[in-house]
């Protein structure tokens, strides 16, 4: 394909990405580096701040007064000004530790329920993005389902990376920052859910992709012709080939000094599959051990017989 066509494809996917994904990397990085002025996220780093902030998890708009009041309480109470940016090297990482024994029953299940409802919403966003990939909706409908079933968790893990730094992650559309130590303080096996995503995310962020690079990379992941059970692989591979060309060109133009970035990115696709396999096994374990846990029907559909 002509370079002009490949650039047009990159632009189209970037526009779709901006349309369907509410929190871009650009916005998340601005929040994480404290460049958003007075709008700072509420920090959840222990049970007390969780109790204060839990009602706002998954809120699209946290009430300003409440939010600011609580934010300053957290900031003053712990001598944290602003939020723990990746470069700050603050002692923030230790704030959430040592509370494992105090965890009230049910907190993990409530958090997991919130995580599920945001994930189901995110699956819808990814589906709309997939439908915007030229040629996707012309594929066999069963193959579209298979591509989403196998691709969507990989996409969601990639999309979490820009929201993370080594100390924690933004949630609730960037309005709450939940610390990595807090996740680690939850009871087993919930404490094991996020750590692999942090490890992946922190490494992934060193590649310094921007939102326009991400849009192409996500499309490449969705268009994987080797998913089990695909009926008609050829047209999927052809679509992926074009997006791969577009991604390669995009990276050359956008990151001229980053050596082997394209190859490094493709390598990440292999790492992702292992993370998804482990994630699915963890959810299956939860299904067996947590009698009170309800699994969202959409997530159930995706996870069932996946790996």
């Amino acid at each position: 394909p002509e370079a002009a066509d490949l650039r047009a494809l990159a632009r189209h996917l970037y526009e779709a990405y901006l349309k369907y994904f509410p929190l871009t990397k650009a916005k998340a990085r601005a929040i994480l580096s404290g460049k958003t002025g007075e709008k700072v996220p509420f920090i959840i780093h222990d049970m007390k701040s969780l109790i204060e902030g839990e009602q706002f998890i998954n809120c699209k708009q946290i009430p300003v007064l409440e939010h600011q009041k609580q934010m300053s309480a957290v900031a003053v109470g712990h001598g944290v000004s602003g939020i723990p940016a990746a470069h700050s090297g603050s002692d923030f990482g230790s704030l959430g530790s040592g509370i494992g024994g105090m965890t009230p029953d049910g907190v993990e299940l409530r958090l997991f329920k919130s995580y599920q409802s945001r994930s189901a919403e995110a699956v819808r966003e990814v589906t709309e993005f997939a439908k915007s990939i030229p040629g996707f909706i012309d594929l066999d409908l069963n193959d579209q389902v298979t591509l989403l079933k196998y691709g969507v968790i990989e996409v969601l893990i990639i999309m979490m990376s820009p929201l993370m730094n080594k100390d924690g992650t933004l949630i609730s559309y960037g309005q709450i920052f939940m610390t990595r130590e807090f996740f680690k303080s939850l009871r087993k096996p919930f404490c094991q859910m996020m750590e692999p995503k942090f490890e992946f995310g922190v490494k992934f962020n060193t590649l310094e992709l921007d939102d326009s690079d991400m849009a192409l990379f996500l499309a490449v992941i969705i268009l994987s012709g080797d998913r089990p059970g695909l009926l008609n692989v050829k047209p999927i591979e052809q679509l992926q080939e074009t997006v791969l060309h577009s991604l390669e060109l995009q990276l050359k133009l956008n990151h001229p000094d980053s050596l082997q970035l394209f190859a490094k990115l493709l390598q990440k696709m292999t790492d992702l599959r292992q993370i998804v396999t482990d994630h699915v096994h963890l959810i299956e374990l939860l299904k067996k051990t947590e009698v009170d846990m309800l699994l969202h029907p959409l997530l159930q559909e995706i996870i069932k017989d996946l790996y």
Binding site: A120, E121, V123, R124, T127, E128, K131, I137, L141, N142, Q144, V145, L148, K149, H296, P297, L298, E301, I302, K304
Partner: peptide, 20 residues
């Protein structure tokens, strides 16, 4: 098809978040 009912729905129409 029955196994992936919601995914089918999402692919065929724009489902609003409330429907999920």
């Amino acid at each position: 098809k029955e196994k992936h009912k919601i995914l089918h729905q999402l692919l065929q129409n724009s489902t609003s978040p409330g429907d999920l």
